[in-house]
Simulated assay, not measured.
Amino acid sequence: MDFTFDWQRTARTGLPEAVLCSAKSSGQLAEILAAARARSARLLLTRLEPAGFAALDDAARAGLDYDPASRTAVLGGPVALSGDDVAVVAAGTSDLPVAREAVRTLAFCGHEALLVADVGVAGLWRLMERIEAIRACRVVIAVAGMEGALFSVLGGLVSAPVIAVPTSVGYGVAEGGRAALSSALASCAPGVVSVNIDNGFGAACAAIKMLGVVSHHGGGVR
């Protein structure tokens, strides 16, 4: 066994340890899954490409809920979900893989999310048609590539904290998500914070931490 899993992370931090699959072999993933099954532990796997999922043997795939759109898999079945406390807002359909990673991470941890897709600022009316539903949420995760304008626009329209997720969707000066990341970090809208490029998992974890702080203090701003 060439891994040491942090089985106590949820109890210690409130967040689970997830398995980043992109740099692991199918054999390593099979060992991790077998260890989780031996403990009857639930497990979230991220960045599991369809080819990587297909490379797992039948025993490793058994019982896995795999979602190719988000490249995530869950071992151990679903849990009961709380209400729509988090809105995940994606600028374009090309940003959906990252947005769905956030949604799946939230669901794994027991939080239902409101997914609002294809509301980029090139057609601002699309966002305004959904803005009241977004405003009803306590945390907003904004997912956008290209120039990342959605982050500042949402920051100026909602009272909830906005977690910006720059995506690597774009070309030219926007290639690789650097322009969107710069927009997130340079936003003039107060209350906007940023995670790394394409990090839907990290954004969901930050949202869960924010919700925990609000719940601990018994209130929050709607």
Rank of each mutant, 00 (worst) to 15 (best):
M146H: 04
M146R: 14
M146W: 00
M146Y: 04
E147V: 01
E147P: 01
G148W: 05
G148E: 00
A149W: 01
A149I: 01
A149L: 09
A149M: 00
L150R: 09
L150N: 12
L150E: 12
F151W: 02
F151R: 03
F151P: 05
F151K: 00
S152P: 01
S152W: 01
S152Y: 03
V153K: 03
V153Q: 00
L154R: 09
L154I: 12
G155D: 10
G155S: 05
G155W: 13
G155Y: 11
G155R: 03
G156T: 07
G156Y: 04
G156L: 12
G156E: 11
L157W: 04
L157V: 03
V158H: 13
S159W: 00
S159E: 15
S159D: 15
A160I: 13
A160L: 06
A160G: 02
P161Q: 13
V162D: 10
V162K: 06
I163V: 15
I163F: 11
A164V: 07
A164W: 14
V165R: 02
P166L: 08
P166W: 08
P166F: 04
P166I: 08
T167S: 09
S168C: 08
V169N: 03
V169P: 07
G170D: 05
G170P: 04
G170Q: 04
Y171P: 00
Y171Q: 03
G172T: 07
G172F: 08
V173W: 00
V173R: 05
V173H: 06
A174D: 15
E175D: 14
E175K: 14
G176W: 12
G176R: 09
G176M: 10
G176K: 05
G177Y: 03
G177C: 05
A179R: 01
A179C: 13
A180Y: 00
A180M: 02
A180W: 01
L181D: 08
L181A: 14
S182E: 14
S182Y: 05
S182Q: 14
S182D: 10
S182K: 07
S183M: 15
S183H: 00
A184L: 10
A184C: 08
L185D: 07
A186G: 11
A186K: 07
S187L: 06
S187V: 03
S187Y: 02
S187T: 15
C188N: 03
C188V: 15
A189Q: 11
A189V: 09
A189I: 05
P190I: 07
G191N: 13
V192L: 11
V192I: 14
V192T: 07
V193T: 15
V193E: 15
V193W: 01
V193R: 12
V193I: 15
V193D: 08
S194Y: 02
V195D: 13
V195M: 08
V195I: 10
